[in-house]
Design a protein around this nucleic acid. Sequence first.
DNA 1: TTTCATTATTTTGTATACATTTTTGTTTAT
DNA 2: ATAAACAAAAATGTATACAAAATAATGAAA
Lengths: 211, 211
Amino acid sequence: MTQYDKNSRFASKQAYEVIRDRILNGDMPGGTKIVEEKLAAELGFSRTPIRESLRQLNYEGLIVNKKVVQPTEKDLRNLFQVRSLLEGFSAKAAATYLPEEDLNALSNCIKVGREGTMEEIMDANERFHEIIVQASGNALMIDTIHRMKSIIYLFRKTVVLYNRPRLIDEHEEIYESIKARDGENAKKLMEDHLKEDLDFCLHILNSSKNA
Amino acid sequence: MTQYDKNSRFASKQAYEVIRDRILNGDMPGGTKIVEEKLAAELGFSRTPIRESLRQLNYEGLIVNKKVVQPTEKDLRNLFQVRSLLEGFSAKAAATYLPEEDLNALSNCIKVGREGTMEEIMDANERFHEIIVQASGNALMIDTIHRMKSIIYLFRKTVVLYNRPRLIDEHEEIYESIKARDGENAKKLMEDHLKEDLDFCLHILNSSKNA
DNA sequence: TTTCATTATTTTGTATACATTTTTGTTTAT
DNA sequence: ATAAACAAAAATGTATACAAAATAATGAAA
C-alpha cells in the first residue's frame, strides 16, 4: 500500500517533504529563519533543489519572507472564509453527484472518527473533507484548496488534539444531508461546521496566548 | 508614474514578465513546447532564472506539462465557478465596507469603459474587478484571485475585443448596488455578470471552433 | 509497412563557483 | 550612550558544468 512516489527520487521533492514536515510538527516553529545553505548542508543536497522546494513552500504559505509562517488570527479567519466558500459549494455539489462508493467512504471516515486513534482521526478528518472537495468536479477549485492544505493541517491538529466536541457529529450531519441529496442543507451544514472549527481554533489560540 | 519595480533587476522576474507577455498576446500560442535552454538563449539569461520564472508560470496555470496552456471549455467553466464564489463574496463585502474614494474609482472605471480606447477599456475592466476584490479584506482571497489573473486576462481580451454587449451596463448596476449598500444584490449582480462573461466566452469559443 | 529494440540527441535535475546584495559587527564621532 | 560610517561576514542570485533521464532517430526483425 505504501505507494512509491516517483517524485521522491527528486532531491527537490524530498527536501520539500522534509522541510514541510519539520514545519508541520513543530521542529521548525513559526518565525524560524530560513537559510538555503544551512538547509542544504543539513539535508545533504545542494542549494539548487533546496531553493526549488522553498519556492513551493512559499507558494503554500508555509514560508513567508524567508521565515516559517506564524499565522495570525486574521490569517486564520481568512483561511476559513475561503474554505467556507469553496467547501460549501463542494458540499452542495456532493449532494447532487456523489456516487454510492464515496458515500460509503464518507461513512467510514465517521466511523474511524469515533473509534480510531488520534492519528487515524486526523487522517479520517482530512479524508472526509477531501472526498467532498473532489465532488466539486472542479480541478481549479480542488487545486486551490490543496494549496491551503498545509496550513489547514496546522489548524486541524489543534481541533483534533484538543478534542473538539461535536466534530464528528457535525460530519455525520453533513453526510446525512449529502445522502439525502439536500444540497442547500449540506452547504449550510458545511459552512456551520467550518465556523465551529474556526471558533474553536480561535478559542485555543487566545487562551494559550494568555497563558 | 511608470514606477520602477525593483524586482525587475532580477533576471528571473524579467524572464517571467517576458514569457508571460508572450503567452498572453499570442506570441507563444497554446501548445507551444517550453524548453529551458531555448528560452535562456533567446532571453540572454542562464537556465537558472529561467527555471524559476517557469515555476511561477506553472503556478499561475499558464504553463502545464512543459507546454503553454490551452484552456478547454471545462477550464473556462471552472475558472468562472471559482471567480463567482470569491468575487460574489467580495462584492457583498464591498457593499458593506467600500470607502467613498473607492466608489469614485469604480465610477471612473465605468466612465472609461464607455469612452476609452480598447486598451483603456481593458484596464478599466480589470481595475473595476480589482477594487472589489480588494474590498474582501482577505489577503488569501486576494492572492487566490491574483493567481488566476493571467488566465482571466486571456479571456477578458475576448470579452472586450468582441465587444460584449451590456458589459459596462452590468458594471454600473453592480456599482449602484454597492453604493446603495445592498450587499445581497451586489453579490447576485456580480454572479450574473460573471455568468454572462462566461456564456459570451463560450459562444465565441464554440463559433470559432467551427470556423 | 509495422513493431520493437538500440543508439543518438536533447532536455532536465543537481552540484558548484562566483559576484552582488544584505546583514552583522565594529569603530568612530557626536 | 547613541548614531553614523565603515568593514567583515553571510546569504542570495546567477552562470556554468555534468550526469541522469527523457525523447527522437535509426535500423533490424516480423
